[in-house]
Nucleic acid binder design. Structure first.
Lengths: 149, 149
DNA sequence: CCCATTTCAGCTATACTGATATGA
DNA sequence: CTCATATCAGTAGAGCTGAAATGG
């Protein structure tokens, strides 16, 4: 039998990319759970956020503003449309495009999601003091700013 | 046309779980690329690491020691076996079990992977000073230590 | 009988690629 | 003709669930 405590190999325990992955996985799970209570996923939230903050946009612009691939956007927008949270209409100025608008219901839903996500982040960061939270965000920001790819 | 710089909604830019996800994604990509040069993935590395650090083990024990699900382990071990990096043999003491061993070639490969991953982590952390790297790892560790799920 | 181990078959959310039809 | 847009089809790695077969 294996009565050993579940040890992790040192190589894995100390690898920065692993630690980051674990922390991010935990964070994603926490946020995803909060959104799942509304039957939505991260893509949906990102789209609602982009639409309220920047106004109506083409799918191409939404892709740029959320980082969601154009191909994945189609499905996410279909789901938001089914739920009445956004509306797609053809752009009269350029008939290749759709103009996507957030609805009143979409704005209301976004407010609820904001609250739920605020709680999720709070729970997530609970082990860290205010200054430590800021330090963490700062360090992550600097890590990302230094990317080459 | 959309000549706007690719702005991100503030909600997304400032959400801790998003920042973490982005940093982790970048880190994972960097490590995965290093492993892909050898035709391997993270699961393979984790398994080779567990086998060298803790010695031969059943698949069940390997699952505990790497966090890889038993169902996913099967395929990863098949691939390692095909490449001659590990060997599976039935456990004489418990015929439900396989004993997995790392081969000499597996040990050699692991050394090469270690080197490649060391470079990847170095590149990843390049924007941070030594003390800042330590602070980041410490903060992530504390975040993970405070989990409830 | 119940429990552990391995394997198989499947699903999910996310990231990503390539092809196609339509229109600028 | 070339380029942009939206859509569709498909791939990939990783996390996860459930069921089946075998054996303790």
């Amino acid at each position: 039998m294996d009565n050993d405590p579940a040890r992790l190999p040192e190589r894995l325990r100390t690898m920065p990319s692993r630690l980051l992955a674990q922390a991010a996985g935990y964070a994603q799970r926490t946020s995803a759970d909060a959104l799942a209570a509304f039957g939505l996923r991260q893509h949906h939230y990102a789209l609602l956020a982009a639409l309220t903050e920047f106004g109506p946009a083409s799918q191409s612009a939404l892709s740029d503003r959320t980082g969601i691939y154009r191909s994945d956007l189609v499905g996410a927008l279909n789901e938001l449309t089914e739920r009445g949270l956004v509306a797609r209409s053809p752009d009269p100025d350029d008939r290749r495009r759709n103009v996507v608008n957030i609805s009143t219901a979409g704005r209301q839903q976004l407010r609820r999601l904001d609250t739920a996500l605020r709680h999720a982040q709070e729970q997530l960061l609970a082990p860290l003091s205010g200054p430590d939270r800021q330090r963490l965000l700062d360090l992550l920001g600097r890590l990302l700013a230094g990317r080459d790819h």
